[in-house]
Simulated assay, not measured.
Amino acid sequence: MKEITVTEFKDLQDKGEDYQLIDVREPYEFDIANICGELIPQGQIPDNVDKISRDKKVIIHCRSGARSGRIVQYLEQQHGFDNLYNLKGGILAWSAEIDPSVPQY
């Protein structure tokens, strides 16, 4: 499984690279804190595989990186994706290292 750190992700954003950001947390978590990802809760991923790009980098994140890591593995193994990156440390790392205005919970 490929991972991307929050610093690498910030650099990708700053350079204007094309990517898709998917948030696999639950709606109530998204309401507490989000970094503008497309919300597809982990339980809904199997029914929304068609919404995940295959022709650009796709960064998948959750609160800490654990759930998103499992989703990356699932999508790679079951659906043949090869362009997915787990956001290492998730939104907690983003808040700690990039943007402290994003609440930790």
Results as ranks from 00 to 15, higher is better:
L87V: 06
I45N: 01
M1I: 02
I35L: 14
C62R: 00
V72I: 02
D23E: 08
I52V: 02
D18Y: 04
Q42V: 10
Q13G: 10
P100L: 05
E97I: 02
C36Y: 13
G16N: 08
G90I: 06
T5V: 06
Y85S: 04
K15D: 12
T7G: 09
D14V: 09
A93I: 12
D99L: 07
R67Y: 02
T7M: 08
E8R: 05
I91R: 03
T5M: 03
S101V: 12
L92S: 14
T7Y: 09
K57V: 01
P103L: 11
K2N: 15
S101F: 06
P27K: 07
G69K: 00
E3S: 09
Y105C: 09
Q44S: 13
D31N: 14
I59M: 01
R25S: 09
K51N: 06
L75P: 13
L39M: 12
I91F: 05
D82Y: 04
W94G: 14
I32W: 05
Y74M: 15
E76V: 10
F81G: 03
Y85I: 02
A66H: 12
N83E: 06
N34A: 06
N86D: 06
D18Q: 15
E29R: 04
P100I: 06
G80W: 07
V49T: 06
D47C: 01
F30H: 15
P46L: 01
V102K: 01
K15R: 11
R70D: 09
K57P: 08
Y85F: 12
D31V: 07
R67A: 02
Y105D: 15
Q73R: 04
E38P: 15
L39S: 09
I40H: 04
S53F: 00
G89N: 14
E8D: 13
S68A: 01
V24P: 10
D14C: 07
D31C: 08
I22G: 11
N86K: 00
D11K: 11
S95Y: 06
Y85K: 01
Y28P: 14
G69I: 02
L87H: 03
Q78C: 09
